[in-house]
Computed example of a mutant assay.
Amino acid sequence: MAFTSARSIRRTNPITLVLGFVLFLGFVLFLLTPSTPSSPASSLPRPQPKGSRPPIRHFQLNNVTTTGDPIGNEERVLILTPMVKFYQEYWDNLLKLSYPHELIELGFILPKDRNGAIALKKLDAAVKKVQSGPKKNRFKGVTIMRQDFDSTVSQVEKERHALKAQTERRAAMARARNSLLFTTIGTETAWVLWLDADMVETPHSLIQDLASHNRPVIVPNCFQRYKENGVDAIRPYDYNSWAESDIALDMAKKMGPDDVIYEGYTDMPTYRPLMAMIYKENPGTDIHEEMELDGVGGTALLVKADVHRDGAMFPPFSFYHLIETEGFAKMAKRLQYKLYGLPNYLVYHYNE
């Protein structure tokens, strides 16, 4: 009986009951706890990068200023260039722009043909050299795109400026501009400077000079340097900056819906006042003299980013019988923006 009594005491010991309860509770928790992935990397919470963006971002576009003092107000400039050929003179001129490079972003779009591949290789090398060089020379950012469509227009200057080539050439250029614009414009972009890849000479203060007028759209006068009988001379190049004429408006009324008026061709005498022909080559001429325009060229074109945000793009189709940059001008005017040109402020196009 003594042996039996001892076993009874051990079974009813409180310590035994507590240990049994703990073991039972642990078993229940084990069954209820969900299994974890076998990979140790995925089982751990991923650390958030320092300064990571929250899921929801807020931007106040009203805080993006476009003023006559863009440097003082640290306004971001987006320089956009459709590029078929890489001209070293273009790149050298771009690097000499005195606007702070930390406030400039660059965007390029190149065709997906052989010419584009050659240009891309040179551009990529030039960009990498600058962006890995002294910090003061680096740009805020650089975007390089390849077109997702083909263009069969010849790049020989005489052939690409022939009247019969204009519809295809200008439509392709408009599509390239739109692709580049819609991909690169950011919430902090204040100004967009369109600068053609064959613009090889501008004043170093080009951006702040144009922005100082504080106009929604403003364009300088594009000329070309050449030699005449061994003597240096200049001549007008871009005829797409003009004021409207009654003759051109009457001409448009007689056209079909898909027809386009191309400026600067004897086969289409519009008698529009062309900014290229208003340049005054006199000492002391005011380079900031303005004229109001109805059409603009895109060789060097400064646009307030809000004009693009409001919907002014480059139509690759007949828009009021205009296309590409001149069609953009019409869109901007329909949005109640005014356009201006500087007939005595010269920039220079490459002379082939």
Results as ranks from 00 to 15, higher is better:
Ala2Cys: 08
Ala2Asp: 11
Pro14Tyr: 09
Leu23Arg: 12
Val28Tyr: 11
Pro40His: 11
Pro40Gln: 13
Ser42Glu: 14
Ser43Lys: 14
Pro47Trp: 07
Thr67Tyr: 05
Arg76Leu: 09
Tyr87Gly: 10
Gln88Arg: 15
Glu89Leu: 10
Ser98Glu: 11
Gly107Asp: 04
Gly107Cys: 02
Ile109Tyr: 05
Lys112Glu: 14
Lys112Pro: 13
Arg114Cys: 09
Ala119Thr: 10
Lys121Thr: 15
Ala125Pro: 08
Ala126Cys: 00
Val130Ile: 02
Arg138Ala: 07
Val142Ser: 11
Met145Gly: 09
Arg146Pro: 09
Asp150Lys: 14
Asp150Ile: 12
Ser151Met: 09
Leu163Pro: 06
Leu163Lys: 03
Leu163Glu: 05
Ala171Trp: 06
Ile185Cys: 07
Thr187Ile: 09
Glu188Pro: 06
Trp191Glu: 02
Leu195His: 02
Leu195Ala: 04
Leu195Gly: 03
Asp196Thr: 10
His204Trp: 10
Gln208His: 12
Leu210Val: 01
His213Pro: 03
Pro220Ala: 04
Tyr226Ile: 04
Trp242Cys: 01
Ile247Ser: 13
Tyr262Glu: 04
Thr266Gln: 15
Met268Pro: 03
Pro269Gln: 07
Pro273Ile: 02
Leu274His: 05
Asn282Pro: 07
Thr285Ala: 03
Gly298Ser: 08
Met313Asp: 12
Glu324Thr: 07
Met331Pro: 07
Ala332Phe: 00
Gln336Val: 08
Leu339Glu: 04
